[in-house]
Computed example of a mutant assay.
Amino acid sequence: MTGRRERRRIATEQRDDRRQTIRNLLARVDRAAAGRLSLTTAEAAQLRAQVEAEIAHAEALRRSTAGAQSLTRALQQQLAAAEDAIREVEADRDATSAA
C-alpha cells in the first residue's frame, strides 16, 4: 500500500507535469496568435483537458480548505467552552476553600 508521503509526491509530480504541459501549450497558442504556427485540434483538446484538471484540483483544494476552517472554528469553540468550565470549577474550588 502506498504511504501518504508517496501519494503526495505522486500528486505533486502529476500537478507539475500538468502545469508544464499547460505552459508548453500556451506557448504554442502564443505562437499561433502571432501567425507563426497553428495549434492542432489535438493540442487544443489537450490544453482544455489539462486546464479542466487544474480547475478541478483547485476546487477540491478549496473544498478541503473550507472543511478544515470549519473544523478549526468548531475546535476553537470547544476549547473556549472547556476553558470556561475550568475557570468555573476553579472558582467553585476557591470559594469552597475560602469558606
Score class of each variant (00 low, 15 high):
residue 68 A to H: 06
residue 69 Q to C: 12
residue 26 L to D: 05
residue 91 A to Q: 07
residue 94 D to K: 10
residue 78 Q to H: 09
residue 61 L to W: 05
residue 71 L to F: 11
residue 25 L to Y: 00
residue 96 T to S: 08
residue 81 A to I: 10
residue 53 A to G: 05
residue 36 R to P: 02
residue 62 R to C: 05
residue 22 I to P: 00
residue 75 L to F: 08
residue 31 R to D: 01
residue 84 D to N: 15
residue 3 G to S: 15
residue 48 R to M: 12
residue 33 A to W: 01
residue 81 A to S: 10
residue 55 I to V: 08
residue 54 E to A: 14
residue 99 A to S: 09
residue 10 I to K: 07
residue 34 A to M: 09
residue 88 E to T: 06
residue 46 Q to D: 05
residue 72 T to M: 09
residue 66 A to C: 04
residue 77 Q to F: 13
residue 14 Q to I: 09
residue 4 R to G: 08
residue 23 R to E: 01
residue 5 R to T: 14
residue 70 S to K: 08
residue 55 I to F: 09
residue 3 G to H: 07
residue 12 T to I: 11
residue 33 A to D: 02
residue 35 G to N: 01
residue 8 R to N: 15
residue 59 E to T: 03
residue 63 R to Q: 13
residue 5 R to A: 06
residue 4 R to P: 15
residue 73 R to S: 05
residue 51 V to A: 03
residue 88 E to G: 09
residue 11 A to D: 09
residue 17 D to I: 13
residue 21 T to D: 02
residue 56 A to C: 10
residue 1 M to G: 14
residue 65 T to E: 13
residue 35 G to V: 01
residue 67 G to T: 05
residue 30 D to S: 01
residue 10 I to W: 15
residue 52 E to K: 07
residue 15 R to D: 10
residue 69 Q to E: 14
residue 34 A to E: 03
residue 4 R to N: 12
residue 35 G to M: 01
residue 72 T to F: 10
residue 39 L to N: 00
residue 23 R to L: 00
residue 89 V to Y: 11
residue 47 L to A: 03
residue 53 A to W: 08
residue 10 I to D: 12
residue 29 V to Y: 00
residue 75 L to S: 05
residue 97 S to Q: 14
residue 23 R to K: 02
residue 34 A to T: 03
residue 72 T to V: 15
residue 31 R to Q: 04
residue 71 L to Q: 09
residue 8 R to F: 10
residue 7 R to Y: 03
residue 73 R to T: 04
residue 56 A to S: 08
residue 15 R to C: 08
residue 26 L to W: 04
residue 85 A to M: 13
residue 7 R to F: 04
residue 22 I to W: 01
residue 49 A to G: 04
residue 19 R to V: 07
residue 67 G to I: 04
residue 60 A to I: 04
residue 88 E to Q: 10
residue 67 G to N: 14
residue 41 T to E: 13
residue 93 R to Q: 12
residue 18 R to V: 07
residue 59 E to N: 14
residue 4 R to I: 15
residue 56 A to M: 04
residue 46 Q to R: 15
residue 89 V to P: 02
residue 92 D to Y: 07
residue 52 E to G: 11
residue 57 H to I: 06
residue 82 A to V: 09
residue 37 L to F: 03
residue 71 L to D: 11
residue 13 E to A: 12
residue 35 G to P: 00
residue 40 T to P: 01
residue 23 R to H: 02
residue 51 V to I: 10
residue 68 A to T: 08
residue 60 A to T: 05
residue 76 Q to H: 11
residue 3 G to F: 07
residue 67 G to A: 08
residue 18 R to N: 05
residue 23 R to D: 00
residue 41 T to W: 10
residue 17 D to L: 15
residue 98 A to E: 08
residue 85 A to Y: 07
residue 5 R to D: 09
residue 58 A to Y: 11
residue 2 T to D: 07
residue 21 T to S: 04
residue 11 A to F: 11
residue 78 Q to F: 14
residue 49 A to T: 05
residue 16 D to G: 02
residue 80 A to T: 08
residue 13 E to R: 03
residue 74 A to P: 03
residue 60 A to M: 06
residue 19 R to W: 12
residue 10 I to G: 14
residue 46 Q to F: 03
residue 28 R to G: 00
residue 35 G to A: 01
residue 26 L to S: 02
residue 85 A to L: 05
residue 78 Q to E: 14
residue 71 L to C: 11
residue 11 A to I: 13
residue 22 I to N: 01
residue 13 E to V: 07
residue 17 D to R: 06
residue 16 D to Q: 09
residue 67 G to F: 15
